[in-house]
Design a protein around this nucleic acid. Structure first.
Lengths: 205, 205
DNA sequence: ACCTGAACACCGTTCAAGT
DNA sequence: ACCTGAACACCGTTCAAGT
């Protein structure tokens, strides 16, 4: 089948199918994606000249578009920052198998970049000085990225030790709570700490 | 050349060569590694039946052995936690190209696990209750992992916008400081905040 | 412009065969 | 036990050929 009357594929369709494929199988191969789409692997390159990497970046954009705040609004900076961080983490947690691919690759998706830019603008408007703003964004970014990794593979799943004396294993068993829920609670506590302290340090940052 | 009198390879040698290969080239392939070692790719499997994944885990162990505290000592918990977090981040920052491979894979290396266990023991001895201890370790882990990613690919390298109005780009240009140094300073500030706040919350965590 | 099929240069891993 | 070489089932990517 050569060129059809209407295109068989679109960038959105490809990115969407790729995300679904990763969510279900945990792997992302061009042949696999082509199979799902019912086309040949080479035809994907017509829509994504950048190949595999560009598709992953498109998925990042798809995820960012879902609920990451990308425009400053009239909420106070704490509320905006909370929303930004929660959206980031929630999205990653919903697609754990996508996380390693997203963190392995430099961010170029404009919507994700807009999210960082919006956060920076909100902090600037709140009186954070240049360097302090940068530290604040970096610290929040680090915590959110790490939390995304933790959401994808919580401490609990690999730190369970058979040793009954293990302080970590013991605490995990004592906590008796679903790993995802616990990971989420840790995130909320950490986020609260950071926003609170960054606010207090703000000008002296 | 069949089996030589003395083994040509050892696990340590293989892991060391693999790390050097990643540091230099940014890629890790079995054929590439075999080439550096002067053996055939298949011979590596005799030392690492677990293949590629097991070699990466051995590298993790090699890195953890370097300076990660893996045994509780008599320092106060803040000092121990600082040392643990700094060692973790420093090691990753020294091998940025290794970071994506290390974060993409579940931790099974015993020395790294011992590091988490030691941290948990120190916190328990300092009076952190079970669940609070878990949150503290998780929060620190998230921040350290995220910082490792940031050290490998600092915000600054991809958030530089040509837009002169960009709050983030402007702050980065205004900061006028080496990205690795800035990343490090952000880490220190964030770590200070977390240790301080975790200490204050401790029992109520 | 958009898709196909063949081709290229790779991968990771397995395994019989050697000593 | 430890290494080799061949083999298997894959990859991502390119490109001439079709309409």
């Amino acid at each position: 089948m050569p060129r059809p009357a209407a295109p068989l594929l679109s960038r959105d369709q490809i990115a969407h199918a790729a995300l679904a494929l990763v969510d279900e199988t945990g792997t992302f191969t061009l042949p696999g994606l082509a199979g799902v789409l019912g086309v040949s692997a080479s035809s994907i390159y017509h829509h994504f000249p950048g190949g595999r990497e560009a598709i992953i970046e498109a998925i990042r954009g798809h995820l960012a578009a879902a609920d990451l705040p990308t425009v400053p609004d009239d909420r106070d900076w704490q509320t905006f920052t909370e929303a930004w961080a929660r959206a980031y983490r929630r999205t990653f947690a919903q697609h754990p198998r996508m996380v390693p691919m997203l963190t392995a690759q430099v961010v170029s998706d404009p919507r994700t970049l807009a999210g960082y830019e919006a956060l920076a603008k909100v902090l600037r408007a709140a009186g954070f000085p240049d360097e302090g703003l940068l530290h604040a964004v970096t610290i929040l970014d680090c915590f959110v990225l790490g939390s995304a990794l933790d959401a994808a593979a919580p401490l609990g799943v690999w730190a369970e030790s058979p040793d009954p004396d293990s302080a970590l294993g013991g605490a995990i068993r004592a906590a008796r709570v679903d790993p995802e829920l616990r990971s989420q609670r840790s995130f909320e506590i950490g986020l609260g700490i950071l926003i609170d302290s960054l606010g207090r340090l703000r000008v002296g940052l």
